[in-house]
């Protein structure tokens, strides 16, 4: 069986970009160690985690045309699936992952089944509403920190190895991203993906042809939620903390920004989008400090403008603007 679901055009700008980015990511901890800059390992771990969540969102947003403004709730769920068991002394990563994935799949099945009855703006709003519900639910967990969130005493352990080492955690996130990329690549091109993309391109026609698109959308929605939950598991491990703020609607907004920034409807776009957005959030304060030291803390102003401009002019995203084939 072929390993790649479609022939690779090695000379296309997209392929080259993807390979270079992945190669750099693969080597980053080594480079960071050489320059004694371990801070960049955890920064890049965060980037990978956001990329993973965005890959999940992209599945429905980029390929299914479902604009969910509530996907941060699954990141939240994943993080709490680590933090709450950990607070009871359960640090097994397998258990935590199992809890994260099963509870997310269950919740997403319910939320998806209700939300997918609506389309367009109503879908955006109802997903937002469900995320708010979970957010307030987390706030109300007084035994688990309530508003303030709760710290995670120890990172997850997976039998022989655990994530306590920063570099191990980095590679766990990196591998999760690779796996998610590969699986979504396959899924998008598969018969399932064809129907999903068809339902985005023209839902009415897809139904008239005989495709019960609701089922496809629901399955995609659940899968995308589960990917976000895995990102949440990793995030709790990185920050050793879980808080309702992980599920804030602004986080859902950021995930959308990442997907668009990278390029809607491209498999690799979310990785590029996450790198750009998080690097920007990191760099803007420093940049402003050099020019207007007094306004260092007001970098969000520029970020807001940046997002506005992206929405206005960047139709295909950064990665999406690259040619998929060589000329």
């Amino acid at each position: 069986m072929k390993f790649f679901p479609q022939p690779i055009v090695w000379s296309s700008p997209r392929t080259v970009t993807a390979i270079v980015v992945l190669a750099l990511l693969a080597m980053l901890p080594i480079i960071a160690a050489a320059f004694d800059a371990s801070y960049y390992v955890s920064l890049t771990t965060r980037i990978l985690i956001y990329a993973l969540a965005a890959i999940g969102l992209n599945l429905i947003l980029g390929f299914g045309g479902m604009v969910s403004l509530g996907h941060a709730m699954y990141v939240l769920l994943g993080a709490y699936a680590v933090a709450i068991p950990a607070s009871h002394g359960v640090t097994s990563g397998f258990t935590q992952l199992a809890i994260a994935i099963s509870s997310t799949a269950l919740l997403a099945a319910g939320v998806g089944a209700v939300s997918l009855r609506t389309t367009g703006i109503a879908f955006i709003m109802i997903t937002l509403a469900f995320a708010q519900m979970l957010f307030f639910g987390a706030v109300s967990l007084k035994d688990y920190g309530g508003d303030d969130g709760l710290t995670v005493a120890a990172r997850s352990s997976f039998g022989a190895f655990d994530l306590s080492n920063n570099v191990t955690l980095y590679y766990a996130a990196f591998i999760a991203v690779l796996v998610a990329l590969y699986l979504s690549w396959r899924a998008v091109l598969s018969p399932f993906g064809l129907v999903l993309r068809g339902s985005k391109a023209n839902a009415r026609r897809a139904i008239a042809l005989g495709h019960p698109i609701f089922q496809y959308q629901l399955v995609a929605y659940i899968a995308s939620a589960v990917v976000c939950a895995v990102a949440g598991v990793l995030l709790a491990n990185l920050t050793l903390f879980a808080s309702p703020s992980y599920g804030a609607w602004t986080v859902s907004g950021e995930l959308i920004v990442i997907v668009i920034l990278g390029g809607l409807g491209t498999v690799f776009g979310p990785v590029v989008g996450a790198i750009i957005l998080l690097a920007l959030e990191e760099a803007l304060p420093t940049l402003i400090e050099h020019v207007l030291p007094d306004y260092k803390s007001n970098w969000m102003l520029l970020l807001g403008l940046f997002i506005f401009v992206v929405a206005l002019v960047l139709k295909h995203g950064v990665f999406g603007s690259l040619k998929s084939r060589s000329p």
Partner: peptide, 12 residues
């Protein structure tokens, strides 16, 4: 989608 994104930027 573009509208949500742009006005999200405006909020920030």
């Amino acid at each position: 989608l573009d509208q949500v994104l742009a006005t999200f930027g405006l909020i920030l």
